[in-house]
């Protein structure tokens, strides 16, 4: 067990946007449960927003023992300054030793501000979390230098120890409807003077725009495909499997693919069940965005393509030859 200090328990921020709690919160509660187990401590959750108390029960089902709720119409829209105030109030009052936040756009915007006010060590975009056996400190592992290198980071001093974790990196546990926990209302009034940032308008991406990071199956094309005709075949394959089309950066640059469908360091990180890579070489900047997929099937005519090193199976052929056969064979097996 960790030494007995004032600071204990593992706090997870549950981000609510568009009136819905984000999945990454549940993923992190699973991690928090594991870390708290190693420390012999408890798991807590923090929800900030308007009309958000309803989500406390779900947080308990996913592992929270205590849920702090800052529920106030003034928190209806996210403003860095007001959320930062509320967040820091809760941390200063309840003193969690570890604070985990999803590395979503909102989470990254908020965590830098919170870490600064609390003068806390903050490690961004972690892919692995653990507790040091000797010091009982949080060990956060993250890719750096574009995924070429992994670094394990700890806080040599200060409390709490903060980390942000990318969505979909940790697997979500199963909710347990029988779990019991405590819900604590925390009131942090908003000073209207703090709301100097105002959202004037939100323009959603055009209808039909999908978020590939939520797809179970992704069919991705690269420079080896590089044609409208090839992407039509990829679409056919994706439709057959109920998946989404994605691709490498050069395909976005070539105008064959919208930027929301780019996978990789400067695109999206995806962790689908099945990722089919067609004509993609497997540059490190691409791999960091897809290498945690459960099953990777690659088609490439170069047997030395690096993509094969991360693939469950590889088909060493031209896509022009392999894709039609793959589609017709799958049609038979699926139906």
């Amino acid at each position: 067990m960790a030494e007995n200090t004032e600071w204990k328990d593992v706090l997870v921020f549950i981000e609510v946007s568009d009136g819905k709690p984000q999945e990454v919160g549940w993923e992190l509660l699973g991690q928090a449960t594991r870390l708290a187990g190693k420390l012999g401590q408890k798991v807590s959750a923090l929800i900030i927003g308007d009309n958000v108390k309803q989500f406390a029960k779900e947080a308990i089902e996913y592992g929270a023992d205590t849920v702090y709720v800052v529920d106030d119409p003034a928190y209806k829209t996210y403003v860095t300054r007001t959320y930062n105030n509320a967040f820091c109030e809760v941390v200063k009052k309840y003193k969690p030793t570890i604070v985990l936040i999803g590395a979503t756009p909102l989470g990254r915007d908020l965590s830098g501000a919170v870490g600064t006010v609390l003068q806390a060590g903050l490690t961004a975009d972690c892919t692995g979390l653990d507790i040091d056996d000797k010091t009982f400190k949080l060990l956060s592992t993250r890719p750096t230098f574009g995924g070429n290198i992994m670094a394990t980071i700890f806080c040599q001093k200060g409390q709490p120890q903060m980390s942000t974790v990318r969505p979909k990196v940790m697997k979500k546990g199963n909710p347990d409807p029988a779990r019991k926990g405590e819900v604590i209302d925390v009131s942090v009034p908003v000073d209207p003077k703090d709301i100097t940032v105002k959202v004037l308008e939100f323009i959603p991406d055009k209808a039909g725009a999908v978020e590939i990071e939520h797809a179970k199956i992704i069919v991705a094309g690269g420079k080896g495909v590089n044609s409208q005709e090839g992407f039509e075949q990829l679409k056919k394959l994706a439709d057959l499997l109920g998946g989404e089309v994605a691709g490498s950066r050069p395909m976005v640059e070539a105008g064959l693919l919208p930027v929301e469908r780019q996978v990789g360091q400067t695109g999206k990180t995806v962790v689908p069940r099945v990722f089919i890579a067609v004509g993609i070489s497997g540059a490190i900047q691409h791999l960091v965005g897809m290498q945690n997929s459960d099953v990777i099937i690659s088609i490439n005519n170069d047997p030395n393509a690096p993509i094969f090193k991360v693939s469950t199976v590889g088909i060493v052929k031209r896509w022009q030859d392999a894709l039609p056969e793959l589609i017709s064979d799958l049609e038979k097996r699926v139906n």
């Binding site: 806390a120 750096t144 394990t152 980071i153 040599q156 047997p303 199976v313 060493v316 392999a322």
Partner: peptide, 28 residues
Amino acid sequence: PTWVKRIFTPPPREGGPLFDADDAVKKA
């Protein structure tokens, strides 16, 4: 407050089998 404890090259994921013959698609 933060300090790097260790840096390492990410462990390579084990690549699976490659197929290049006529029945490659079926085998995969």
